[in-house]
Design a protein around this nucleic acid. Structure first.
Lengths: 108, 108
DNA sequence: CTCCGATATATCTGGCGCAGATATATACGC
DNA sequence: GCGTATATATCTGCGCCAGATATATCGGAG
């Protein structure tokens, strides 16, 4: 198997952050909303990804304790993260093309 | 996460069998050839799938001991298997559409 | 003022899909 | 007789992810 599209959850998280800085809960909501419920990003999948993103320097996380809100950690894509997303995008495009070729050949 | 596209290997195996009955080794070769090497279906993934396909009545397997060839088990899609493939196809289409909508929105 | 649901982050567990390694056996060319 | 390609099969380990669980705060309903 090709390893393209290895982790959907990672791709979706990067996609959410590409629109602007967000905290975990917000990313999860964004994914559900923007995909009309088709995709769901569970917290059990999301948080480890967020930590890895920060650890690998793809996103910068900063605590927002601004008054009257429970503490939330806001993540913003770094330049490296934007590049990683671009890579994921082209991987996805290749994957989709490969599938389309296969699907196109057999039975219109 | 949506469970669409849960198993690429299964989809690829069904796709190979849709073109005509094949045995395991042949399915693996077909996938590599038709995708120009983009996809690879390892035997460790393929054989368990083939057994499950037979067990679930999606494919019928029959041993071919015809003279001068090592014994090979040829699988052919059943009506149920063809329906399963049609379902996989439409699942894939939905998945691709969902991704395209998401990708289209952020950064054309 | 208390309960409850929504917000919010986080970890742990188990299941599943798959690649790679390994085992076994036969056909064919050299 | 030997190596390579053909052929089926299982086992192991790793990575991804859903669901369960824990903890804490905020705002509104009662």
């Amino acid at each position: 198997m090709s390893d393209a599209g290895k982790s959907r959850a990672l791709f979706l998280a990067l996609l959410a952050l590409a629109e602007g800085p967000k905290h975990g809960y917000e990313i999860s909501s964004w994914v559900s909303a923007k995909s009309a419920g088709f995709f769901t990003l569970s917290f059990g999948a999301l948080y480890p990804i967020l930590h890895k993103l920060e650890q690998d320097g793809l996103a910068r996380g900063s605590w927002d304790n601004s008054g009257g809100a429970r503490a939330r950690k806001v993540y913003a894509l770094t330049a490296k993260g934007k590049k990683a997303l671009a890579d994921e995008r082209s991987s996805y495009r290749e994957l989709a093309l490969a599938f389309d070729r296969l699907l196109g050949e057999s039975k219109g």
